[in-house]
């Protein structure tokens, strides 16, 4: 198949795959309630009682299937981009928690005498498991939604997240086993155990099999260079294997100075060109506890790369007449990967790079972009919040007015890639919308989800 024919069939194929995975997900979620409906069924216990019970089953399943959403399956996440799968995981956790809470609340409303079961002397062990599951779930959701406000260290939060998730689902399963009313029948019980077993396999895959596979494909740090204040570029080469192939703009989880089993990995956009693979470059800004140590990484250190992931790539829109790359701060990194790839291919389509930063001296990869501009049909437009005294360029935030001045008149067929802090993405989205850019041409990469 020729390259253009391949591209022509790729988008519909990705959409079809996306729909297929979504349908599969919804079927998986519905499976346990369908299981309850299978004959023979025990006698009904009243509409609200059974409604509450089915909610409990379905919400537990939602939580169990969450393990699939974070298992980083390449085929299942490729159509959407894994950032959005994680975002879906986060929203589902909120919805699932409401459904989980609805289960005991409905039961207590229809039968307030059940509150007596909550007194320590009377609590049967399976009820205790149910209460424990809810406590773990609430801790899980609160620590994820408000990690920064609670000042939880990212690495510690990740370990707590994994433990609490398994505890919340495990205790919910013990609760269901203890009640054992609707899955008491042996065949139903067996089917339920198969379903639960699949979640256990997912946990084992994520926590044991995947790290073991990663440990067999180590990388070596071959260079550590300072790019701008608090910005470092790491260059990695595969150690004894062929490395990964990626699309420009994608990202990977990077583990430095530690075992892949230790869960000390962090997601970073790849800065290098796919043409330069298997050599990989990551340009990283000091933003947190881990990234503040990046500059101290010794040359020769072992690293592990889990990737590539993400749908943020111009290669997904190969027919575009041109690309507009809008970056805030370190959001420049995936843009540079795309520019490098286009330069390596000799692509001369018109490109616009709008880079928003606080100050000129803090602009990351400035020299790299200047060099790339010589090889590309690229217009670079820096926008500064605090410009130097003799600054002639754009000033302030990426408002519709600024974008209007930067973009060409024929702007509705270009593809727009936006990466940066969430408020900037929202501002640009509103700006482009007001300028008549079709939202289907607006592509973002979500990071900083927790």
């Amino acid at each position: 198949m020729s390259k253009s024919a391949d591209h022509a069939t790729r988008t519909p194929r990705l959409i079809a795959q996306g729909v297929l995975w979504l349908v599969l997900y919804i079927l998986l979620i519905m499976l346990p309630v369908a299981l309850l409906l299978l004959p023979p069924r025990p006698q009904g216990s009243g509409f609200w009682y059974d409604f509450s019970l089915a909610l409990g089953f379905a919400a537990t399943t939602m939580m169990g299937v969450q393990f699939a959403l974070t298992a980083r399956f390449h085929h299942a996440t490729a159509p959407y981009g894994i950032d959005i799968v994680y975002s879906f995981h986060r929203h589902l956790a909120v919805v699932g928690t409401i459904l989980v809470l609805a289960h005991p609340i409905i039961l207590i409303v229809i039968n307030p005498a059940l509150l007596h079961l909550l007194q320590p002397r009377h609590v049967p062990s399976h009820m205790l498991a149910g209460i424990g599951s809810i406590v773990c779930l609430l801790a899980l959701v609160a620590s994820s939604l408000w990690r920064k406000q609670l000042r939880l260290h990212y690495d510690g939060w990740r370990i707590a997240h994994a433990v609490l998730a398994v505890a919340a689902v495990g205790l919910a399963l013990l609760h269901i086993e203890g009640v054992s009313y609707y899955i008491g029948e042996p065949r139903k019980h067996a089917l339920w155990l198969v379903l639960v077993g699949s979640w256990l396999l997912l946990v084992l895959r994520t926590r044991l099999v995947k790290p073991w596979l990663l440990s067999r494909w180590p990388y070596r740090v071959v260079a550590v260079e300072r790019d701008a204040p608090e910005v470092w570029t790491l260059t990695l080469e595969p150690d004894g294997h062929r490395g990964i192939e990626f699309e420009a703009g994608q990202f990977a989880w990077l583990t430095l100075a530690g075992s892949p089993f230790a869960m000390h990995e962090h997601p970073f956009s790849i800065a290098s060109s796919p043409v330069a693979a298997p050599r990989l470059q990551f340009t990283i800004k000091e933003l947190g506890d881990f990234t503040r140590t990046i500059g101290n990484t010794p040359v020769g250190a072992i690293a592990y790369v889990d990737g590539p992931y993400g749908a943020f790539s111009m290669d997904r829109y190969p027919e575009a007449p041109g690309y507009v790359l809008i970056a805030g701060g370190i959001g420049i990194v995936p843009m540079v990967s795309m520019l490098r790839a286009l330069a390596d291919r000799g692509d001369q389509r018109p490109l616009w790079l709008i880079g928003a930063n606080s100050r000129l001296e803090r602009v990351a990869l400035r020299d790299v972009v200047s060099t790339l501009a010589l090889r590309l049909n690229l217009r670079v437009i820096p926008v500064l919040e605090e410009p130097p005294a003799n600054w002639q360029g754009e000033v302030g935030y990426l408002t519709a007015d600024v974008l209007n001045r930067c973009l060409p008149a024929q702007r509705d067929r270009l593809e727009y890639f936006v990466c940066g802090p969430t408020p900037m993405i929202h501002l640009v989205e509103h700006g482009l919308y007001s300028l008549g850019v079709p939202m289907a041409r607006f592509h973002t990469e979500l990071f900083d989800l927790v």
Partner: peptide, 30 residues
């Protein structure tokens, strides 16, 4: 936009589950 879609899809999934649970309770008690 994708994030909004993910949020709507999550709430839609929740609504679907509520409907399914109600259907189960209805069948069980008719």
């Amino acid at each position: 936009m994708r994030n909004r879609l993910a949020r709507w899809l999550a709430w839609l999934t929740g609504a679907l589950i509520v409907l399914l649970a109600a259907l189960f309770a209805f069948i069980q008690n008719r």
